[in-house]
Write a protein that binds this DNA or RNA. Structure first.
Lengths: 227, 227
DNA sequence: GCCGCGCTGTGATGGAGAGCACAGAACGCC
DNA sequence: GGCGTTCTGTGCTCTCCATCACAGCGCGGC
């Protein structure tokens, strides 16, 4: 179980614990495996467990009646999800699916509550993470209400650069393969709109493509497009 | 201070405490007063205090560069706000203003952290409230992405009926005076769009007006408009 | 009771983006 | 290396909604 304990150390809200507590907690988590595309849970499912990404990546999304869903987040190793149902006991508020070959560690509600009761600093750490998440969602709502497609796309590219970018001589390379459709789902527009706006950006020298990866040449220019 | 203690009892996350603890806490809160229209705090302000509405009502909103802002919530007695900055120490993620003559109780970060450390069940209760809030914001983002103006308006009217409605022989009366502009800010559209869609709803017999208050005659009909 | 301001109702216009259709490119599989 | 599937690029149309403009109405104040 030492590998679980090592991962747990990197999880923000668990890093606050004593190594001894983490060791104890590691005994309660179970490991699960998902293939690319597997659904981890659906919106409205009753589950109350917390998932921690051990390896791979997970897409959190809201399904829409007409198919095209809204992607809220893409998570990597060390991130956790499913916390809302854990915290308030309600059904899942969003759906989760493996975006690549993924393994997770699962913690059950009862074990989490026991942890918080015995170590209140863990609760404060979880509160901070959830608060941060709430900020991000508020901002997403504001963007949907205030920005046009170009602005939302520019902003999303900058966000992705911040979270998945690696420095390159000619700019920042986004270290993930993204289709235009996936990008469209992240900002709530059609694939065609993304295509046309990307064309704009490319012609203006703001971004370029390397295979299916993006390179941001002019972050400042993108920032100007978000007003 | 007994009146403060009584209010504190009605605040969800503090209701979990022993009466003795609430009495102690009441000694730390300070009372503040705001007139209709007063700004309580601006977005990006550094403050780290928690506000509890004692009387009156408070509008939480995101200001937009071009003026028309997005109203995230309207709070009444017993509700609290400003919790995000309290939880993670970052600047205010939204702005707050008094929607009517309002008094609040204020709790400082240090006192809150001390409370959580000594009474972890309060932390669990706060987590539940914040989790609920996160759900609502996620749903708002989804609505902005998926629903048209009629759908968003119908949904908002149903929400308001659930939170501020009183039963009437002919339907549910919304117990608050709302201008079309305020309604428009809640769903991120123009006042004119709200007007036209309300006209639709009225002609279809779904809603009516009593003075400046709304009466919902056919909730089922409204529900159908949200798909 | 009268006046004025803010709210409501409505028309005309324009533009952004969705939807549809399809052609070509690229990637991956056998 | 050939072939099919998936992704990208682009034109056209049409709808929804923002914007502007203005006329009535109604509430509240003096």
């Amino acid at each position: 179980m030492s590998t679980s304990a090592e991962l747990l150390e990197r999880v923000p809200f668990l890093g606050a614990l004593q190594p001894k507590d983490r060791e104890a907690l590691a005994a309660y988590v179970t490991r699960r495996h998902f293939r690319r595309g597997d659904t981890i849970f659906q919106k409205e499912d009753p589950g109350q467990s917390l998932f921690i990404v051990e390896s791979g990546s997970v897409r959190i999304y809201l399904p829409s009646p007409q198919g095209a869903d809204l992607t809220l987040a893409v998570l990597g190793p060390g991130d956790f999800f499913g916390d809302l149902s854990l915290l308030d006991g309600s059904p899942r508020s969003a759906a989760a699916a493996a975006a690549s070959e993924t393994t997770t560690l699962t913690l059950e509600r009862a074990d989490f509550i026991a942890l918080v009761k015995s170590r209140p600093e863990a609760a404060v750490a979880v509160l901070a993470v959830v608060a941060h998440r709430l900020r991000e969602t508020d901002e997403m709502a504001a963007d949907l209400a205030f920005l046009d497609v170009a602005g939302r796309l520019a902003k999303k590219l900058l966000e992705l650069a911040a979270s998945h970018g690696v420095q390159r001589p000619n700019g920042v390379l986004l270290n993930l393969a993204l289709t235009q459709e996936e990008l469209a789902n992240m900002i709530g527009v059609t694939r065609e709109s993304v295509n046309r706006n990307l064309g704009e950006f490319r012609r203006a020298g703001l971004v370029a493509n390397e295979g299916r990866r993006f390179v941001i040449h002019d972050p400042e220019g993108l920032r100007r497009r978000c007003e």
